[in-house]
Design a protein around this nucleic acid. Structure first.
Lengths: 110, 110
DNA sequence: CCGATAATTTCTGTTTTTGTTAATTATTTA
DNA sequence: TAAATAATTAACAAAAACAGAAATTATCGG
């Protein structure tokens, strides 16, 4: 996972509509049209947001097995897992900072 | 923590320079000028990125105790903790999806 | 094959964000 | 108090992201 990937993930998640889509998809996969209606935006607009999400790797598209006009979107776990890993790394370095700080003032303040 | 806050956090993190700053700050607090030099960008540009980070709540600014021209930036934990919580919520809903899916096909595929 | 449906792409104008350079503010030091 | 330093704000041009409307593609059902 490169730093560049994290950028794309974060940029994709930074839009309110797109985060709304992710919020919907984490419950279950949904059709493109369903996402547009639930979000109250025009189809073409949703379509472009979905493309952005696809290109960032956050979602994937399947076709409905009975009607292949219908595109079903689902969340892909990897990008968000990578993001979470980065956040966790931050927290590790953080607690290390805190430890170093405490070591400077060893006298506990009881 | 509102959805709006998450947007600001994500938007702030979505820029490569700003993420570089966060990467530097998670090791230890640093002076504004130090951040500009380490990132190889002009001071005014860094200054604006720092403002964005400040406004998102990701960093805070202190003055050096001996020279108050110097501004020292440090990371604030809350926004990233909130973001992590959102990611974890996603993973919970996720595993629920997976469980529901498995329940539909109870026959394990030995 | 034809009309209807699901969704995407293209085109275009607008707003936001980004980077540069110049000017400004606040503080320290001589 | 004047020069130097640390950093920010202001002004402006270039680049990118956004949203709406129209046109296009692919597939289904009769």
């Amino acid at each position: 996972m490169s730093a560049h990937d994290l950028d794309r993930t974060l940029a994709a998640l930074a839009d309110p509509y797109r985060r709304r889509v992710v919020d919907l998809l984490r419950e279950r996969p949904r059709r493109a049209g369903e996402l547009a209606e639930a979000t109250r935006i025009a189809f073409p607009l949703m379509s472009r947001h979905l493309r952005t999400l696809r290109e960032s790797g956050l979602v994937a598209e399947d076709r409905d097995e009975f009607d292949s006009r219908v595109r079903i979107y689902r969340l892909r776990p990897q990008p968000m897992a990578d993001l979470k890993a980065w956040l966790e790394e931050t927290q590790v370095l953080w607690s290390r900072q805190l430890a170093a700080f405490k070591a400077q003032f060893p006298r506990s303040r009881k």
